[in-house]
C-alpha cells in the first residue's frame, strides 16, 4: 500500500472514524453538510463508515453537491480535501429518511464495530458516532442498554480488560458528568452509591488530565437533593453517600468539592471554579448544559481505551433528509475528538 502523499516527511495524522448512526436519522445529513464546511471551519479529516450507495442517494435527495469517494481507511486522509471519504461497512442500507427499516440496526451496528476495529487496528485516531435510535436497535434484538455500553463491550473484547464508560457532556462553557444516566428517577436514590461516585470521579479526573491536558483537574460535585440535602433536612443521601465519596476522592489527592446545591453551581462565576461538574441524575446535568450550549455540546465517553465523541442530540426522524438538521454538535464533536487525541 502506498503511503499518503505529503509535502513533508511528517506522516499525515490518522483520520477520525465517523459512524453512520441510524440510517434513517439525520446522521448522513449532518455528515454531508459538515464536510461541505471542512475548509471554512478547519474540520479535521474523517471518513464515514456507511453504505456508499445509500449515502449517495441521500446526497441526491437533499440536492447536495458533495463528491463521495469510496475508500479504504488508509486513503481517507488524502481523499478528504476533495471528496467525502466513505468506507463501506459491507451492509446494504435501505432506510428512507425518517423511516427506519430492517436494514437500520445491522447497518448502524456494523459501522460501530468497524470504527472500534479501525481504531485498534491503527487506521483511525478516534471514534465519532452519529446518533442511533435505541428503540430500533432494541427491536432488532440488540442487548446493550445503549451506544456507550456497546462501545465499552467492544473495547473489552479487543483488550481483554473491562472498562467503565463515563458520559461527559462538554462545551466550552461547561462540562458535566451525570453519575446516573438513563434510569427512572425512582431508581436513582437506590442505585447511587459512594463507590459509583468515587469510580466516576476517578475516571473523570484521570481523563481530564490525560485527554484534556488539565494538570490538576477540579471537580464540583452536586448533591442529589435540593440545597444538597440541607444537613439532612431534605434527604439523607447527600450526607450518607455523596459527602463520604467526595472525602474518599480528596484522600486520593483528587480536587473534589461538594456536595454542592445544584442550583448555585452553574452561574458564570461558579463555573470558573471547576473543570467538570458531577451531577447525580440526568436532568441535573443536562438542564444546565442544554441551557448554556443548546446546539454545540458534545457527548464524550471517558474511561474507554480510545477517544469517543458524539453529537449531543438524537436521530431527529422528523427532519431527516430535509436539510434542516443543524450540524453544529457534530462539528464540535469532530473538533473535540481531534483535540483529545493530541494529548
Amino acid at each position: 500500500m502506498t503511503k499518503p502523499i505529503s509535502s513533508t516527511n511528517k506522516p499525515m495524522p490518522l483520520p477520525l472514524a465517523l459512524t453512520l448512526g441510524e440510517p434513517a436519522g439525520i446522521g448522513l445529513d449532518i455528515t454531508l453538510t459538515t464536510w461541505q464546511r471542512r475548509t471554512e471551519l478547519g474540520i479535521p479529516p474523517f471518513y464515514l463508515l456507511a453504505d456508499p450507495r445509500h449515502l449517495k442517494s441521500r446526497a441526491a435527495r437533499m440536492s447536495l453537491d458533495v463528491p463521495i469517494a469510496p475508500v479504504e481507511p488508509a486513503q481517507a486522509g488524502a481523499a478528504f480535501a476533495n471528496a467525502l471519504p466513505v468506507v463501506d461497512i459491507g451492509v446494504t442500507a435501505t432506510a428512507d429518511p425518517g423511516r427506519p427499516d430492517a436494514s437500520s440496526a445491522p447497518a448502524a451496528i456494523a459501522a460501530i464495530r468497524r470504527a472500534v476495529a479501525d481504531v485498534f487496528g491503527g487506521m483511525a485516531s478516534a471514534v465519532v458516532t452519529n446518533p442511533v435510535a435505541k428503540n430500533v436497535l432494541y427491536r432488532s434484538g440488540f442487548a446493550e442498554p445503549g451506544h456507550t455500553e456497546y462501545l465499552a463491550k467492544l473495547a473489552a473484547e479487543m483488550t481483554g480488560a473491562t472498562a467503565m464508560p463515563v458520559m461527559m457532556l462538554w462545551s466550552p462553557e461547561l462540562a458535566v458528568v451525570p453519575v446516573t444516566i438513563h434510569l427512572p428517577l425512582s431508581e436513582v436514590p437506590k442505585r447511587l452509591t459512594a463507590d459509583l461516585v468515587v469510580d466516576t470521579g476517578r475516571i473523570v479526573a484521570r481523563d481530564l488530565n490525560r485527554r484534556f491536558g488539565i494538570a490538576h483537574p477540579r471537580l464540583a460535585v452536586a448533591g442529589l437533593n435540593p440545597h444538597a440535602g440541607e444537613e439532612g433536612a431534605l434527604g439523607e443521601e447527600d450526607r450518607a453517600i455523596v459527602a463520604p465519596a467526595i472525602a474518599r476522592l480528596a484522600a486520593e489527592g483528587i480536587d473534589a468539592r461538594g456536595p454542592l446545591p445544584a442550583d448555585t453551581m452553574f452561574h458564570e462565576a461558579a463555573r470558573k471554579s471547576y473543570d467538570a461538574a458531577l451531577c447525580m441524575y440526568h436532568d441535573q446535568a443536562l438542564i444546565p448544559i442544554k441551557t448554556l450550549a443548546f446546539n454545540h455540546a458534545v457527548n464524550v465517553t471517558l474511561g474507554l481505551p480510545f477517544v469517543r465523541t458524539s453529537p449531543d442530540h438524537g436521530t431527529a426522524f422528523d427532519i431527516a433528509g430535509s436539510g434542516r438538521a443543524d450540524p453544529s454538535s457534530l462539528i464540535a464533536a469532530l473538533k473535540l475528538a481531534a483535540r483529545l487525541i493530541e494529548k
Binding site: 435540593p226 440545597h227 445544584a262 442550583d263 448555585t264 453551581m265 452553574f266 438542564i287 444546565p288
Partner: peptide, 15 residues
Amino acid sequence: MLHDQGHVAAKVLSP
C-alpha cells in the same frame, strides 16, 4: 416536577 429542574435553569439564565 423537582426543585433542581427549575432552579438550575432559572439561575443559569439569571443568577
